[in-house]
């Protein structure tokens, strides 16, 4: 086995006020969504799309603790092809998560938004968008500073 490259952050510095406000955004978003397991699924999916090792490591651990089925975690990157492993509400949330995360490829399609709006009332939908936006923000803060997976200093 060849040596593994050292995992060292580019920087662990983050303005304390930024960190504190980020935590407040994520906490308020998750509270308003009121579905911790779904929050983990969408946060893991966004972190997959954004290639954030730190966030994947953290949210996969939380999801397992919360009892999210291992099959859902295994099949998440291929949820569209995973049949009834995900229910219609989860599928609507995952499609919205992908659209909100892939903004550089185009606007959130009307049918994706409309489908999400069928499964979530307005207040929950607003908080779902906030959960996806929050994890997208953490992904950016972690990937750009290259915080290693499992790091306790971030």
């Amino acid at each position: 086995m060849t040596a593994r490259p050292a995992r060292v952050a580019r920087t662990t510095y983050l303005d304390p006020a930024v960190r504190s406000a980020m935590r407040a955004v994520s906490a308020a978003a998750k509270k308003g969504l009121g579905d911790p397991a779904l929050a983990e699924l969408v946060q893991i999916r966004a972190s997959q799309l954004n290639h954030c090792a730190f966030c994947l490591d953290m949210h996969l651990a939380i999801a397992r603790e919360q009892g999210v089925p291992q099959q859902q975690l295994d099949l998440l990157p291929a949820w569209e092809e995973a049949g009834d492993v995900f229910d219609e509400r989860e599928r609507a949330a995952l499609a919205l998560t992908e659209a909100v995360t892939l903004l550089t490829e185009g606007s959130v399609p009307d049918e994706v938004y409309a489908n999400a709006a069928e499964h979530f009332d307005e207040a929950r939908l607003a908080h779902l968008v906030a959960v996806v936006t929050g994890i997208n923000s953490w992904n950016r803060l972690m990937v750009s500073r290259r915080i290693p997976a499992g790091s306790t200093e971030w």
């Binding site: 006020a17 504190s20 406000a21 407040a24």
Partner: peptide, 24 residues
Amino acid sequence: HLDWAKLAPDVFKAMIRLDAAAGQ
């Protein structure tokens, strides 16, 4: 589509705080 700032006021307040802190 959605007046999210009204529907999720705590998120909006935290975003305003974040906006003020970021880029100082």
